[in-house]
Amino acid sequence: MIIATLCGMGFGTSMMLKLSVEDILKEEGLRAKIESWDLGSHKGQKADIIVAPDDMARHLKDSESEVVLIHNLTDEAEIKTKLMAAINELQA
């Protein structure tokens, strides 16, 4: 499973999200390849799940990945609930 975190520059927000995703997977005993992407370079790359700030929804309309949109990037509970729902969906 590949999980990508996405933001405008692949540098701040997506890195923060990447650490959150790593923590959540560790807690849940799950393994995945986690990448952080920026908008400029994400096209053509493939991931099973993309985690991004909800404000970036319009940039992800055509994505074939399962898209997880986060309102509050500091809210671990929100990230966990939404990410786990996407992982369960993927594994169903």
């Binding site: 405008g8 927000t13 700030p53 404000d55 970036m56 990037l73 500091t74 809210d75």
Partner: peptide, 22 residues
């Protein structure tokens, strides 16, 4: 410019913005 181009995604939590470039 990044906010103009990409959107205000750097508003990471209610009331809080974390601005940066590279």
């Amino acid at each position: 410019e990044v906010i103009d181009e990409v959107g205000p995604y750097m508003v990471i939590a209610p009331g809080v913005a974390l601005l940066h470039a590279r």
